[in-house]
Amino acid sequence: MLMNKNSTPSNGEARLHYGPSGFRVLRAGQFVTCAMSGVPIALEELRYWSVEYQEPYATAQLATERLKP
């Protein structure tokens, strides 16, 4: 990871922008919080999110439940 002299790595919550096939890190961190359950999700474990709502989900079941009409 490239960092300038004024930045430090964060062990806290990351801020992401969710796209249709991936996400972009806006603020470095180790995890995001599931929008449905509130549990932390390590970035390397993040598999489910909503582009429309810009929210991460811990499981496929939670993502499906959130996105029901």
Rank of each mutant, 00 (worst) to 15 (best):
M1T: 11
M1R: 04
L2T: 10
M3T: 14
M3Y: 15
N4I: 10
N4F: 04
K5W: 11
N6I: 14
S7P: 00
N11R: 04
E13S: 05
A14V: 05
R15Q: 10
R15S: 09
R15P: 00
L16H: 03
L16K: 02
H17L: 15
P20G: 02
R24M: 09
V25D: 01
V25F: 02
L26R: 07
L26H: 03
R27Y: 07
R27A: 14
R27W: 07
A28Y: 04
A28D: 15
G29T: 10
G29L: 11
G29S: 08
F31K: 02
V32M: 10
T33I: 15
T33W: 03
T33Y: 01
C34T: 01
M36I: 03
M36V: 09
M36E: 13
S37C: 15
S37G: 10
G38A: 02
G38R: 02
G38T: 05
V39S: 08
V39R: 11
A42K: 12
L43E: 08
W49D: 00
S50Y: 04
V51Y: 02
E52P: 00
Y53A: 13
P56K: 03
P56C: 06
P56N: 05
Y57V: 04
A58H: 11
T59D: 05
L62Y: 06
T64W: 10
R66K: 11
L67P: 00
L67Q: 14
K68D: 08
K68F: 08
